[in-house]
Design a protein around this nucleic acid. Structure first.
Lengths: 131, 131
DNA sequence: TATTGTTATACTCTATAACTATA
DNA sequence: TATAGTTATAGAGTATAACAATA
């Protein structure tokens, strides 16, 4: 059931994100950066569970699109700090609005109590999945 | 959250299935056949949402392993009926026992009411995802 | 002409290994 | 020596196109 719902969610999300010029992983990375700027690209890759070598080309694209910046960490010049730009923040929040709307519609069919329990349980399982 | 939980589930399931000599898609196909024997390979592919061309090589493997049989449909000789063998049923139910055990452990942390609501909501969402 | 099963091919996604620059 | 970032390459997974048999 989880796999089936996830696939349906991805199918529903992709055209929405494409309308904002984003890929699925691009959106995930921007979302993560929206929560906290990345101390390093490696940390960012681990936070979103994405391969660090693929993250690089993704960051190349997002940087080229002006959605984020990369600058050497003054404390460790091997590492690079990644920050959202103003444009990146606006694209992210605009995409998030549409994604949230889609999610709301999906959950509309569920009774209120069941819906709250679902979200609570999902959060706990997702947190458990991190370990 | 759905994607993260799904990935964690797959990670947890793979070693279990491997112990029974099954792949993830092999288990999915056997499970589907356990619910209802397939009227055709195409119908089976659509039921589990798997590419029909990939299903063929998967069925080749499962048939070669003695877990299922393929025979021409007398009513439409283009199509082939797919049935679980006795061995296939035993392997399926043995694997399912272990998978269910893992799932139970995962849900153990949730309060009873939340857990029931989760399963009910998942079933409804998964059903909705079919359309 | 359309459909089932099949094969071969091309393509995308993902993981591995090797290199550089810093520490 | 170990780590962050990078690149190139190999591999797995997936989708596309074409074909034979049957409807």
């Amino acid at each position: 059931m989880f796999a089936r719902i996830t696939r349906a969610l991805i199918t529903a999300e992709e055209p929405i994100l494409e309308a904002h010029g984003l890929t699925m992983w691009g959106y995930i990375v921007l979302s993560q950066l929206g929560e906290q700027p990345a101390g390093s690209q490696l940390a960012l890759a681990q936070a979103v569970r994405y391969d660090k070598t693929r993250l690089i080309v993704l960051l190349d694209q997002l940087e080229h699109a002006g959605l984020l910046t990369r600058r050497p960490d003054p404390a460790d010049r091997r590492a690079r700090l990644v920050d959202l730009t103003g444009v990146g923040e606006r694209v992210l929040s605009a995409a998030r609005v549409d994604i949230r709307k889609m999610e709301e519609e999906l959950l509309e069919g569920l009774p209120r109590g069941q819906r709250d329990a679902l979200l609570c349980a999902l959060a706990r399982l997702a947190e458990g999945a991190a370990t």
